[in-house]
Design a protein around this nucleic acid. Sequence first.
DNA 1: TTAACAATGATAATAATTTTCAATAGGATG
DNA 2: CATCCTATTGAAAATTATTATCATTGTTAA
Lengths: 144, 144
Amino acid sequence: MIFQKYLAKHDLRDTPQRELILDAFLTLEEHISAEQLYDIVKRQDPSIGQATVYRVLKLLMEAELAREIDFGDGVIRYEHKYNHPHHDHLVCRGCGKMLEVVDPVIEELQKRVAESHGFKLTDHEMYLYGLCEDCRRKKSAGPQ
Amino acid sequence: MIFQKYLAKHDLRDTPQRELILDAFLTLEEHISAEQLYDIVKRQDPSIGQATVYRVLKLLMEAELAREIDFGDGVIRYEHKYNHPHHDHLVCRGCGKMLEVVDPVIEELQKRVAESHGFKLTDHEMYLYGLCEDCRRKKSAGPQ
DNA sequence: TTAACAATGATAATAATTTTCAATAGGATG
DNA sequence: CATCCTATTGAAAATTATTATCATTGTTAA
């Protein structure tokens, strides 16, 4: 609905490809790369091109339905934005496990840090990297 | 000196190219991309190859002399790490101006957030984005 | 000085993403 | 419903940043 409204407002057409990619994206729970999404969508319609997937992801960003996340590994991933409020990411350096976290005090302090330099904060990114319990156990138990 | 020690310890050779690139990097105050560094170095020695610049930056990382920063625009930049303790970045969405910031309370809270999920924090990245004073003034004054 | 091999520069390769472009297909209008 | 205009599509080429390859050069230690 939101996407359709966005399309209408911007004189863009509602095509079966766009619907398919949107549905596939919304069905997913976790963040996903353009290539992964292409793989999924291709199963339902092998004729779809990957450029279209990239194009739709860009549209979803503009429609505020998707948000980019970048762990710095050269691949951009996307996650839901609609009905999925802001949060940061806690990532395990060992196994890659990822948790969404928010700390309201940090959020408030970030605003203040920005203000103390004359900035009006618009948004931020925070990635916490560490080792999860499992990986720490493996590390101390296993050889070296 | 530190770089030379690192080279010696790892059975790597101290070459004029490595010296030149290291010096150019250390002379710089701000963060820089591999390509920008290549441009600078090329002026002093046009025969230098850009692969060497990429290779030396990798060495500087291993020697703890450089640190990567990634603003998510597809280009990796590097900044000094030696004698330049950890900090985060406050970036203006308007003009790109960048400030280094640290808030010890945020740092502490990050550790606690990680611990509350069973993680042992190893490092983090935090980018605060906003509008600086100048850009805000321009925005409210200028047309639209 | 010479054998062994690390380092270099040029270039090719990679990988993710974007652009190009000819063919196709929405959808408003008559 | 047919038609025209133009947005959209898929395939493939182009881009961009970075990495790998490889023949040649330079260093070092015996």
